[in-house]
């Protein structure tokens, strides 16, 4: 059937849709300013902190998160890893990357958790959302850069936006899953004592879904970190930029050191969020 007709002008349709959307400049500027504000706030804070204090704070958070099963090896790793990043002169790039990751994770959380809750409560909404989430996750991440630039220009903000789109699905999915996994009998117990929907959600469903939900948050964070290099192509600053430059200049050494810094940051973020999840369960 498709052989008989001409090539569908699908890309033209998308283009004219994107063009049509760009007329809402005010709306997109508003978003840009809002997200830019968050980014600048984080960056201001990280620039303010001296390196030693930053390291102490990271170690302190880790110490608190792992209080139910100390891991001295992790603290040691963090100390050495962060000192190495500082030594390699990637400190500011690292804080920029952290800003991008924290901002996009935060937004993914704020949007993703309510969406997950809605999905758990409404079968129709779940049926609609599932293919959309699949689409968001499997569409090559590069593609998001194009409209992101069209709407939000270049810099950190479009980087954050494309990271959010790419990184949000695990949070949504795991929130949905976590709530649906709450045993039927506990839901019946909550209902039989006359709980309202909100009471049931906040007193029973969310507390019991917490560890699954946190696993989703952890995954979202890791995915947004994986967007760092891609987002550098549209001017999001950070370690990704260093990798991108190294590729352009065919400099394997710089590529390795910048890449290693990303790995160190990823491990630190992953272990801390996982430790929080564990400590809350126990």
């Amino acid at each position: 059937m498709l052989v008989l007709i001409d090539k569908l002008p699908l890309s033209d349709w998308v283009n004219s849709f994107v063009n049509w959307l760009t007329q809402f400049t005010g709306f997109f500027n508003g978003i840009t300013n809002f997200i830019g504000g968050i980014v600048n706030g984080f960056q201001w804070l990280f620039d303010l902190l001296p390196v030693w204090l930053f390291i102490v704070i990271v170690l302190g958070i880790t110490y608190y998160a792992t209080r139910h099963g100390k891991k001295w090896s992790l603290l040691l790793f963090e100390l050495i890893g962060l000192l190495l990043i500082w030594n390699l002169d990637y400190w500011r790039d690292m804080t920029q990357t952290l800003t991008l990751v924290l901002t996009s994770s935060l937004i993914a959380l704020v949007i993703g958790i309510p969406l997950g809750i809605l999905m758990a409560k409404n079968h129709t909404f779940e049926a609609i959302m599932k293919p959309i989430l699949d689409f968001m996750q499997t569409m090559p991440a590069f593609v998001y850069l194009i409209p992101a630039v069209a709407f939000f220009g270049i810099g950190m903000v479009p980087g954050v936006i494309s990271s959010v789109i790419f990184a949000m699905p695990p949070t949504v999915r795991m929130t949905n899953l976590g709530i649906r996994q709450v045993p039927v009998e506990l839901i019946e117990a909550a209902d039989s004592y006359g709980s309202t929907s909100w009471q049931k959600l906040f007193k029973v469903q969310l507390p019991l879904a917490k560890s699954t939900l946190m696993a989703g948050v952890n995954q979202s964070m890791m995915l947004s970190l994986s967007m760092v290099v891609i987002a550098s192509m549209i001017g999001a600053l950070g370690l990704g930029t260093q990798v991108y430059f190294a590729v352009g200049r065919n400099n394997a050494g710089n590529g390795f050191t910048a890449g290693l810094s990303i790995v160190i940051l990823a491990i630190i973020l992953d272990r801390i969020t996982q430790a929080f999840n564990r400590s809350k369960r126990g």
């Binding site: 045993p183 009998e185 019946e188 117990a189 004592y193 007193k203 507390p207 019991l208």
Partner: peptide
């Protein structure tokens, strides 16, 4: 008017015994 008691107890694992017992009163 009605309270239900379940076969597999259906206690909330995230709440203490006292908080579990008080659940019906709490939501009132």
């Amino acid at each position: 008017k009605m309270s239900m008691i379940f076969q597999n107890f259906a206690l909330f694992p995230n709440r203490t015994i006292l908080e579990n017992t008080a659940y019906g009163l709490e939501i009132k």
